[in-house]
Structures are given as structure tokens and as C-alpha cells.
Simulated assay, not measured.
Amino acid sequence: MGFHKISLTGRALKYLSQREHSRLELERKLAPYVEEGEDLAAVLDALEAKNFINPERVAQSVLYRRSGKLGASRVLHELRSKGLDDDTVRAAAEQLKDTEHARAWDVWLRKFGEPATTPQERMKQMRFLASRGFGGDVVNKVLRGQAPDED
């Protein structure tokens, strides 16, 4: 059985078949495999030209996977870390803004389910929601027991 070398394109397509990847993510993952005479940028350009790498799809994938558990600031940080452009991140922020209270409420319900009875418990709930990336105004609404449909 001979040794078979996977091309950079083949490796990139393997990663893309598992989930959406941004150009920066693929660059980071493929860099260790680049050999003399290979042009990683050209490989990525070709994949982008064929729409295999698509920033909007990457953003939608992250929103779908992460927004149920995380607040906007954490989700947007993840998008930026993937090297997505400002317009794509801004569009994602708009999408998240409308559902922030409802998402924070769902996370709070799953984790705690009932209002805090002591200042310590209230602080614990606040810290938990804040650590998940929910903003202070939304956290306060949730901890006051204000359900999303009361906005």
C-alpha cells in the first residue's frame, strides 16, 4: 500500500465538507501542509471563486450553532476570530439584536428556571449570563422576570 499525499485543495474540501470554514480558518489549518512550490493563496482564491468559501454561509453557520447558547458579544467575537469582514459581522449583529432577550431568557430558564432569592444568587445568575455574552440591559430584564414577550 503506497503513501498517498492529499493535495491542499483536497484537504481544504475535506474540512469544508465537515462544516463551513472561513478563508482565515482554512489558511491556518492548511499552512502546516504547504510544500515547496505550492501556493496556498491561489488554492484559497480558487475555492472562493467557486463559492466553496463563503463568508455569509460561515456567519449563518456560527449563528445557527452558537446563538442558542451565547449572547451577541460572544457570537460576534467568534465571527471576528474567523477573519470575517466588518459588513458580514455587522449583518450578523443585526440578526442577533432582535432575538437577544428571548435567547437570554431561554438560557436563563434552562440553567436556573426561577428568580434569585438572595443577592448572592442574583449575582451568580448575572455573572453566568454576562459570561455567555449577554448585555447588561438584557440580563437585568431577565433577572427582573421580564419575559421576552413583555418587551
Rank of each mutant, 00 (worst) to 15 (best):
D86I: 10
E121W: 01
G113D: 01
E38N: 06
G68S: 05
V142F: 07
R65N: 14
L129V: 00
V139E: 00
F128T: 06
G133A: 04
D39M: 05
G83V: 08
S7Q: 08
A130P: 01
N140W: 02
D149Y: 15
A93P: 13
E35T: 15
V89I: 04
V62S: 07
R127K: 13
S81F: 10
H101A: 07
T118W: 00
K124C: 11
K111T: 03
E20G: 06
R57C: 08
D149V: 15
A92W: 00
G113M: 00
W105V: 11
P55Y: 02
D45L: 09
K97T: 02
Q18F: 11
E94F: 14
W105F: 03
T9R: 15
Q146V: 14
A72E: 02
K97M: 03
V75E: 05
D87M: 12
K141S: 05
L47P: 10
D106Q: 13
K82I: 06
R103K: 14
F112C: 01
I53K: 03
A72Q: 04
P119S: 13
P148R: 10
Q18V: 13
L26W: 12
G135P: 11
E27R: 14
H21P: 08
F128Q: 07
L96Q: 03
E94M: 08
S7Y: 02
R80C: 04
K82F: 10
R103N: 15
M126A: 12
G113H: 00
L13I: 00
R80K: 08
R65A: 13
T117R: 11
T117L: 11
P148E: 10
L63C: 07
D39F: 07
G136S: 14
F134K: 01
A42C: 08
Q18W: 15
A116R: 01
K82R: 14
E78K: 08
V139P: 00
